[in-house]
């Protein structure tokens, strides 16, 4: 009887400590609030350019990174704020980057689309769809060549699975048995083009057999399902058995970027997915299993809210880079 009830407990709750689970919830709230704060700042004209919000995809980012250490690497995408926070970045320095400040992670040179935090193993978001795929394979090659026990997680979207780089990267990772996990965040649309229209296979994980690697499709809004799939893939990578492909089915609540007019999807569809809010689900799960109570959950959210407010304030107060330094960081020596 005892065993049965154990088995009904979701994987994540069996695998991780209450402190880890609480931290995961905090990060999910932090991602949501960070992006809402960024959106608000953008609408007020405080942020330049554009940005790609991942609101609705928080479980995929956080659950994927649960078992990664700072030595493990990730490559991220243009929708990468969540990955960055999940991997351990500080939202103050992230806001500073969005505000174009010298204290930002990229000293104001990268912005939202190139947000990175090399110290926590985040090799960077990427403005090129599919750009990070071969780079992740290269990072895994380094680990293997230098005998490091690191793995690399390569985030990419459903759009990238039709780029040549995807196929070249998966093939090379497989022939060289490299410790890399390809994590597809299938949010159903590459800008406005649906994956159903643009992709010949039903599930992107169906591509995996072509490259002789395991491929699974999971509910990307179910924290535990994602964490479990990654647990297996990471173990396989660390054991030297090679790459895996994990497909997290999810949905972005917002448009592709800030210029999106949402002509290609219906309000009903968006609302239906908002009903599958990954944060609310995970929070309810933690409360149901007694990891947190309502007040504890509120406190977690309040903590995240305070961090976002402090982060925005830090960014606002931070100095801008000097325009004379426009060529700084092009080469190792300043202004080559």
């Amino acid at each position: 009887m005892m065993r049965d009830s154990q088995e009904n407990i979701p994987f994540a709750l069996r695998q991780f400590t209450p402190a880890q689970l609480r931290e995961a919830l905090r990060k999910m709230h932090l991602i949501r609030l960070f992006e809402e704060g960024a959106e608000e700042s953008y609408m007020r004209g405080l942020i330049h350019g554009t940005m790609h919000l991942s609101i609705g995809q928080e479980a995929s980012a956080v659950a994927t990174c649960m078992e990664l250490t700072d030595a493990d690497k990730i490559t991220s995408t243009h929708r990468g704020h969540g990955h960055c926070i999940a991997k351990g970045a500080d939202v103050g320095r992230m806001f500073a980057e969005f505000f174009g400040k010298e204290t930002g992670y990229c000293h104001g040179r990268g912005g939202s689309m190139h947000i990175a935090d090399v110290k926590t193993g985040n090799l960077g978001a990427n403005g090129i769809v599919g750009g990070g795929l071969p780079i992740a394979v290269g990072a895994a090659l380094t680990a293997k060549r230098l005998g490091r026990e690191e793995v690399t997680v390569c985030f990419f979207g459903d759009g990238a699975n039709n780029e040549g780089a995807f196929h070249e990267a998966l093939n090379m990772a497989a022939i060289w048995k490299l410790p890399v996990i390809f994590v597809c965040e299938n949010n159903r649309y590459g800008m406005s083009t649906s994956a159903a229209y643009a992709t010949a296979v039903k599930n992107i994980a169906d591509r995996a057999p072509a490259y002789a690697m395991p491929g699974v499709t999971v509910d990307g809004n179910d924290f535990s399902a994602v964490a479990e799939a990654l647990h297996e893939a990471i173990a396989r990578a660390r054991a030297g058995e090679g790459p895996s492909l994990v497909e997290n089915l999810t949905y972005r609540w917002r448009g592709h970027s800030k210029s999106d007019r949402n002509r290609y999807r219906t309000k009903d569809e968006i609302e239906e997915w908002m009903g599958r809010d990954p944060i609310a689900r995970f929070r309810a799960e933690l409360i149901a299993h007694g990891v947190l109570d309502e007040a504890g959950a509120e406190a977690v959210e309040a903590e995240a809210r305070a961090a976002v407010a402090a982060g925005i304030e830090f960014a606002r107060q931070s100095p801008a880079p000097g325009v004379g330094d426009v060529t700084k960081f092009v080469h190792a020596e300043a202004a080559a």
């Binding site: 795929l133 090659l141 070249e168």
Partner: peptide
Amino acid sequence: LGGAGVAVGAALTGL
């Protein structure tokens, strides 16, 4: 494309 990218990723991480 993939090969050059693997080289870039490897260079980025220590090779």
